[in-house]
Nucleic acid binder design. Structure first.
Length: 354
DNA sequence: AACTCGGGGGG
DNA sequence: CCCCCAGAGTT
């Protein structure tokens, strides 16, 4: 490959064809950083509205550093991978306290922040500060695997270093920001996973896979094994004063710190209603009257498991608030950050009453 | 190195 | 249905 000409063709194409994305209008390293965290494993179109709302609410390092954690989680509600939000706020606090509010331009310093890994580190340092660091994401691995006909399995962690070295080899030192973004843009819009648009590709001449006619065989990616299913029972419990019981999830693990309605895993064969009533008694010390028939069923698919949630409706006579639980009015339920599956539960219950 | 961690859009 | 997305942290 003629590296020099490749760089020119790629960056020229990028400058002419790049999408007008909100974070591309920003120079503030903090805003670039937030965008890169949101974009982890998340499509551009999904991120855009979250990015706008987040920047309106938390426009500076300080505003996020000193924000209420519940407000941050509410702003992240529905975006997924919620540890990103907690790690980001933690890292921003570190920037406020240890770096005087300035996002560090030093590689070791920035990479030491929570939630900043090899990709995000390279992305922010190159885009915000112009440093010639690779930013290897799924797009870049796919593009580089085709360009250089690299047959390394991109599903394997060890392969990332191979692609980082490949990017270093072709890095456009004059404009690392445009170069890195151009590689990603190419992967997102032209060099796509299943049917690459090679006839429209600005660097077709430089592509080894196209030369060999193997662009559809690359990249090599072994697939992970299938997920498991879990059957759950969930119940919306109303007290005599009209409030409903919600509970905050544990601070570690799946959907950490998000709010939910009381629920319990249902082993095969158990009576869901009976299981829920005894769970409520044991976990919350309250006696619940639960309707005999489930009100609806919600299927929720995560990346690694599936919830089948039988949703019940019930009442309790005596309120007894415990740690991490609350009785909230129906108007206030939506001010708390719920996972999408439990948002759906609440939408269903509201629809029943309307 | 393998597993965990969300949710949604496209073929 | 399946794939996979501007990945990082934990084990």
């Amino acid at each position: 490959m003629n590296v020099n000409k490749f760089q020119q063709d790629l960056v020229t194409w990028y400058e002419a064809e790049k999408r007008d994305l909100p974070w591309r209008r920003e120079r503030d390293p903090y805003k670039i950083w937030v965008s890169e965290i949101m974009l982890q494993q998340t499509r551009v179109d999904t991120v855009i509205p979250f990015f706008h709302r987040f920047m309106e609410q938390f426009p500076t390092v300080e505003s996020l550093a000193y924000a209420d954690e519940e407000a941050v989680m509410k702003a992240w509600e529905g975006l997924g991978y919620y540890s990103r939000a907690r790690n980001l706020q933690s890292a921003v606090r570190e920037v406020a306290e240890s770096y005087g509010g300035t996002v560090p331009a030093d590689k070791d310093e920035f990479l030491s922040l929570k939630g900043v890994g090899p990709y995000t580190g390279g992305a922010v340092l190159s885009i915000a500060y112009g440093l010639p660091e690779p930013a290897v994401d799924g797009n870049v691995m796919r593009v580089m695997s085709r360009l250089l006909a690299l047959w390394d399995d991109i599903a394997k962690p060890a392969s990332r270093k191979v692609f980082e070295q490949a990017v270093r080899h072709v890095m456009y030192e004059k404009d690392p920001s445009s170069f890195n973004q151009a590689l990603m843009e190419l992967g997102a819009t032209v060099c796509t996973p299943t049917s690459p648009a090679c006839l429209l590709c600005p660097v077709q001449n430089h592509c080894e896979a196209f030369e060999q006619g193997v662009q559809r065989e690359l990249p090599v990616k072994t697939k992970k094994k299938s997920d498991k299913k879990v059957r759950m029972g969930a119940v919306v419990l109303q007290a005599p004063d009209g409030t409903v019981l919600i509970e905050k999830r544990p601070k570690k693990g799946l959907l950490a710190n998000l709010w939910q309605f009381p629920n319990v895993e249902l082993p095969v064969g158990v009576n869901p209603r009976a299981a829920l009533e005894s769970f409520i008694q044991a976990e919350f010390g309250m006696t619940a009257q639960i309707q005999s028939e489930k009100s609806t069923e919600i299927i929720h698919v995560f990346s690694h498991l599936t919830w089948e949630i039988d949703v019940y409706i019930g009442t309790i006579e005596l309120k007894s608030a415990k740690d991490r639980t609350k009785f909230v009015s129906k108007e206030d339920v939506e001010t708390y950050a719920f996972s999408v599956s439990h948002q759906k539960i609440w939408q269903h219950v509201k629809g029943m009453e309307a």
